[in-house]
């Protein structure tokens, strides 16, 4: 554990909690892509199956359970509890355009051709592009509420901090995972355009 990973994890947690609270407090999921949230629930489910097979630390287990629980709670709020406020017409990105190629890539490029390893690889690749339905929705409606931009900022910041974590771990621990690093770079690059808007416009974005 180093400072970049810890702040990365906390940034990720902040993003998830901000989104949940926003939906809960406003009783609305307007402007939020349910499809991105389904993809994130799928990401956590496929990555954290190792909860059943190995124990790493109390911190690790606790965070995994919180991430999975929050992901499914968010999907529940969007598609069940506050379904009437869900803007399905503007959430038109096709999930299969991400899931199918990513699934294929995970089968082709992985560390080990085993069930759990392929699901882990799938989750890493899928996470890198899971935000695309949300970014697509914002580009379609041409605007994002302030709180939604805070959510995206912390979600993007998390993977950027992980990049620093991997540099740290390479130098001090000899840790090196090409799959995670390349996917993490792709993921961070996808947020760059948004980061620019967030910093220059500060609050709610309107294109």
């Amino acid at each position: 554990m180093n400072i970049f990973r810890l702040t990365g994890d906390l940034s990720h947690l902040a993003a998830i909690i901000i989104l949940l609270l926003k939906i809960w407090k406003t009783r609305s999921c307007a402007g939020i892509s349910g499809k991105s949230q389904i993809l994130f629930a799928l990401v956590f489910t496929t990555r954290y199956l190792d909860l059943l097979t190995s124990f790493i630390s109390l911190y690790n287990t606790t965070m995994k359970v919180i991430y999975i629980g929050c992901a499914y709670a968010t999907v529940y709020l969007i598609y069940m509890k506050f379904k009437a406020t869900y803007d399905g017409n503007h959430d038109s990105f096709r999930m299969e355009f991400l899931v199918v190629p990513v699934g294929g890539l995970a089968c082709l490029v992985n560390h080990d051709f085993s069930f759990l390893e392929i699901l882990w690889t799938f989750s890493i690749y899928l996470e890198s592009v899971a935000i695309l339905p949300q970014l697509f929705m914002i580009s379609k409606t041409g605007e994002a509420e302030t709180i939604t931009t805070h959510y995206l900022f912390f979600l993007g910041l998390y993977r950027a901090l992980y990049l620093f974590n991997w540099i740290w771990r390479f130098y001090f621990e000899g840790f090196f995972d090409m799959i995670a690093i390349v996917a993490g770079m792709v993921q961070t690059i996808l947020y760059c355009d948004f980061f620019y808007l967030y910093v220059t416009k500060g609050q709610g974005i309107s294109l």
């Binding site: 882990w120 621990e173 995972d177």
Partner: peptide, 10 residues
């Protein structure tokens, strides 16, 4: 030695 792909991250 390089320690490749430990699954201790989130």
């Amino acid at each position: 030695s390089l320690n490749i792909n430990p699954k201790d991250e989130l």
